[in-house]
Amino acid sequence: MVLLTLMAIITVGIVRIRNLFGVVVLSGIYSFLMASVMIVLDAVDVAMTEASVGAGISTVLMLSVLYLTKSRESVPTSTPLFPVIVAAAAAAMLLFGTLDLPPFGEAATAVHQHVAPHYLAKSMEETGVPNVVTSVLASYRGYDTLGETTVIFTAGIAVLMLLRGRRKSTKPSTDA
């Protein structure tokens, strides 16, 4: 609960600060807090991934982009009224939706009734992996993971194409 409150405070900081360097550092802190919350919620694998990928790689990527561009945000000219209305309407609808959600942390809710008990009961004899997250990721839902790697591969190719074109286009200008 404390962690979640801290996350909300960090978010206010991200919205308000105009120095983009500060925003990126705050989002790194935010990712670490998110990882801690995941540990509290028993999702240790997710926490490790979030700490390394969310707080590590994302921050490094954003800092390198700030190095290549500029790190100061200009004051927005448009009024914040319309975005505030949109955000408030979305929040109101979501809040209305939470009223019907099942209570926190109970074993009898619908989430725990479908395939998860099967995974937990049969993982050891069907795959031989004690970590159920790993067995579901690599064995039961292996095709999903294959699709995921396809997405990452495509994104990697796209980034390479974008940045290679950049080097070509900047070379003549530096030579001239």
């Binding site: 999702a43 989430v111 995974y119 997250v133 839902r141 995921e148």
Partner: peptide
């Protein structure tokens, strides 16, 4: 705890950083 959401979110985090890089 239920392992299935963990798996889904692992996938989402990694895909998320790929799209962020793009």
């Amino acid at each position: 705890s239920n392992p299935l959401p963990h798996v889904l979110i692992l996938t989402a985090i990694v895909v998320g950083v790929a799209t962020l890089a793009l």
